[in-house]
Amino acid sequence: MSLLVEHASGLLTLTFSEPAKRNPLTPEIADALAKEIREAEASDLVRAVLILGSGGNFSSGGDLRAMPPADTIAAADRLRRYAALITTMAKSTLPMVCALEGTTAGIALGVATACDVIVADEQARLLFPFSRLGLFPDGGLIHGLASRVGPGRAKALLLVGDPVTAQRAYDMGLVDRLAPPGSAVALASDIARDLALRAPLSVGSIKSAFSDGVNALAPTLETERITQSRLYFSEDFTEGRAAFFDKRQAAFTGR
């Protein structure tokens, strides 16, 4: 298992670190990612998560050399572990940013679409190989992809399976920011550090509102009523309001 873990100034950085194999996303790596995110969620020290790959690639996805699993029981366990990671990411109140460089393929795109902000190197390629391999999209990718580009386009991407350039991914809304070659990590790091300074209650509430998909208008307005009524009287809003009028950086506490 190769996952580098770094903590600095409220930012948790998790880096896939098996560059010789283009950072495959194994069940063990999924377990480790989920564990780190859960621990960060419970900590007052972490305000944002940054997910990276090493060696110029984000992740090649599942390791074909380790497939198929030994039997259907092992297969179900493998998918359960991946599902636990994606669910942990989706339910976390921490903002998550990833930087896509080189190749991002298969289930790794499920991890990427579970992030809140996706930054891609202009030379990055996104690969959807499932129909070419005889496999089903995993890592919650049908949901994550459709939530970003719409069901029709998501279906076409997964069925046709052609490589997608970073520019095309940006144009269709799959990627949020493009970075010049070699600078995706720096840009993603800047965004993540900035998010780590935002009001945790506000950020967490926004994430929670989106975690189960966009609701109809009436439930959305009810969520606003409940959540905003609580945040009006938080210490963070008092601090944010004061910092706005004082023209300074707010120091949020999450209370």
Rank of each mutant, 00 (worst) to 15 (best):
I206W: 01
A169S: 12
R241T: 14
A192R: 14
S211I: 09
Q123K: 13
D121R: 12
A179I: 09
L11N: 13
A218V: 08
P180M: 07
A99V: 10
P27H: 11
C115N: 08
V185F: 03
M67R: 12
G10F: 14
G152I: 02
Q249T: 09
I37T: 03
S202W: 09
F136Q: 13
E222A: 15
I142G: 00
L158P: 05
P151Y: 02
V203I: 15
G102C: 08
G110V: 00
A114S: 13
C115K: 08
V119Y: 12
H7C: 00
V175L: 12
L133Y: 11
V49E: 01
S183L: 13
P69L: 02
G61K: 03
P137I: 08
Q167I: 11
G204Y: 12
F210P: 00
S59A: 10
T93F: 05
S43A: 13
T227M: 09
L94T: 07
L195T: 06
E239I: 15
T93L: 05
N215P: 07
L85S: 03
E18L: 04
F130T: 06
G213H: 07
I226L: 15
Q228T: 12
D236W: 06
G173F: 12
G204F: 09
D44L: 11
D212P: 00
G152N: 14
K155I: 04
R225T: 14
L159Q: 04
R47F: 02
S147K: 04
V5P: 00
L197A: 10
A196C: 10
L221S: 08
G204E: 12
R255M: 06
I142S: 08
V214W: 12
F130E: 11
G240R: 04
K207G: 04
M67G: 01
L195E: 03
G152H: 11
E222P: 01
V49R: 02
L33R: 07
E224P: 00
V149S: 04
R255H: 14
E222I: 13
R80P: 02
L231F: 09
L33H: 06
I51G: 10
S147I: 00
D190L: 14
V175P: 13
S60W: 04
L135Q: 10
F128C: 00
P24M: 10
A75R: 11
L201F: 04
D212L: 09
T113K: 06
P181M: 10
R78N: 05
G106Q: 05
A184V: 03
V97H: 07
F16P: 02
R153W: 08
P69T: 02
A114V: 03
A243W: 08
L25G: 02
D171M: 13
D194W: 12
K207S: 03
F58D: 11
V149W: 06
A216E: 15
I118M: 10
A90S: 13
P137N: 12
P200E: 08
A30I: 01
T104F: 03
M172D: 07
M67S: 06
A20F: 09
K155R: 11
A70T: 03
G240S: 08
L79Q: 15
F233W: 15
A243N: 03
F58L: 13
T72M: 06
Q123L: 12
T103P: 00
Q167T: 14
G254N: 07
S60I: 14
A188H: 11
T165W: 13
G173L: 08
R38I: 06
Q228H: 01
D171F: 15
P151H: 02
L195G: 04
G254H: 09
Q249R: 14
G150Q: 05
P151D: 01
M89K: 01
P181H: 14
P95D: 04
R148T: 03
